[in-house]
C-alpha cells in the first residue's frame, strides 16, 4: 500500500534532500555558454520547490544536474546526502533509479508500451518479479485515477492522461525526490490545473521532496518555496 508519511520534523540533523555547492555548468561550443554559475542551494526533505526564470536562465540545467542526467563543470551536487561527482554512469543511474522520479513536459512515455507497462518499466529495470511489478503498476495507476486505462497505449490517451501515467511512472518506487520539468507546459489550463493538484496531493500524501521547473507563475505560487534564476545565478529564493 501507499506509505503515509508526514513532513519530516525540523528536529535532528538529517542531510538535506538536495544540496548544491558552488555548482557551475558550462557548455563548450563555438562560443562557451555558462548555464549555471556557482550556484549553492539546499532543499530540505519534504519541501515542494518551484524554480522559475526566463528561457536560458539555467532552470532545466539545474534540474538535470540534480537528477544526475548531467554533470557539473565544477562544484558538488549531493542527493539524499550522496555526492554525485565521482559516480560512474551506472552509479548515477542507480541514484536516479533509487531516489528520483522524473516528470517531463513531453511525458516521454514509450509509445509501444501500454500504460501499465510504462509504469512498470523502472521496476522491471530494478529486477522486480513480474507479479510485484504488475501489482505496483495497478496500484499507481489507480492512485492517479487511471485504473480504467491500464492497457491503453500512449497514443490512445489524452494529454492529461499521458501526464498522469508519467507521474505514476515517476512514483513507481515512491522515490524520496520528484523532479518535474514543466509538467503542465504541454497541457491546456484546466488539465494543467488538475495535474498540479495531483502533484500537490501526492506530495502531501507521500511527503516526497518535489522540485518543479516552470514558466507558469500560478504553478510556482502553489509551492512552499520559489527560487528564481537569471543568467545562471539565483536571484531570488522565497519561502511562503
Amino acid at each position: 500500500m501507499v506509505p503515509e508519511t508526514s513532513t519530516p520534523a525540523a528536529s535532528g540533523t538529517p542531510p538535506p534532500a538536495i544540496a548544491l555547492d558552488l555548482v557551475t555548468r558550462r557548455f563548450d561550443g563555438t562560443r562557451q555558454v555558462t548555464a549555471l554559475d556557482q550556484v549553492s542551494l539546499d532543499i530540505p526533505r519534504g519541501e515542494m520547490v518551484s524554480i522559475i526564470g526566463p528561457s536560458g536562465s539555467g532552470k532545466s540545467t539545474l534540474l538535470n544536474l540534480i537528477g544526475g542526467l548531467d554533470r557539473p563543470t565544477s562544484g558538488r551536487v549531493r542527493v539524499d546526502g550522496e555526492a554525485l561527482d565521482g559516480l560512474s554512469d551506472d552509479g548515477l543511474t542507480r541514484v536516479r533509479r533509487d531516489k528520483i522520479g522524473f516528470i517531463f513536459q513531453f511525458f516521454n512515455l514509450l509509445p509501444t508500451l501500454s500504460s501499465v507497462e510504462n509504469v512498470g518499466l523502472p521496476l522491471h529495470l530494478r529486477g522486480w518479479p513480474r507479479a510485484r511489478v504488475a501489482a505496483r503498476a495497478h496500484e499507481l495507476l489507480a492512485l492517479v485515477q487511471l485504473g480504467h486505462r491500464l492497457q491503453h497505449l500512449p497514443d490512445e490517451l489524452s494529454g492529461g492522461e499521458r501526464q498522469r501515467v508519467a507521474i505514476a511512472r515517476a512514483l513507481s518506487i515512491y522515490p524520496p525526490i520528484l523532479l518535474a520539468d514543466e509538467p503542465t507546459g504541454n497541457l491546456d489550463t484546466r488539465t494543467g490545473g488538475e495535474i498540479l493538484a495531483l502533484i500537490q496531493a501526492l506530495h502531501a500524501r507521500l511527503g516526497s521532496t518535489v522540485v518543479i521547473v516552470t514558466h507558469d507563475l500560478k504553478v510556482a505560487a502553489s509551492c512552499g518555496r520559489t527560487i528564481a534564476l537569471r543568467d545562471g545565478r539565483i536571484v531570488e529564493d522565497v519561502r511562503r
Binding site: 542526467l69 551506472d90 543511474t93 536516479r96 533509487d98 514509450l110 523502472p122 530494478r126
Partner: peptide, 16 residues
C-alpha cells in the same frame, strides 16, 4: 534516441 534516453533516465543501466 529519446526512448533510450528515457530508459536511462528512469533507471536503465548501461548493460541494460
Amino acid at each position: 534516441r529519446r526512448e533510450l534516453g528515457v530508459l536511462k533516465a528512469v533507471g536503465a543501466l548501461r548493460g541494460q
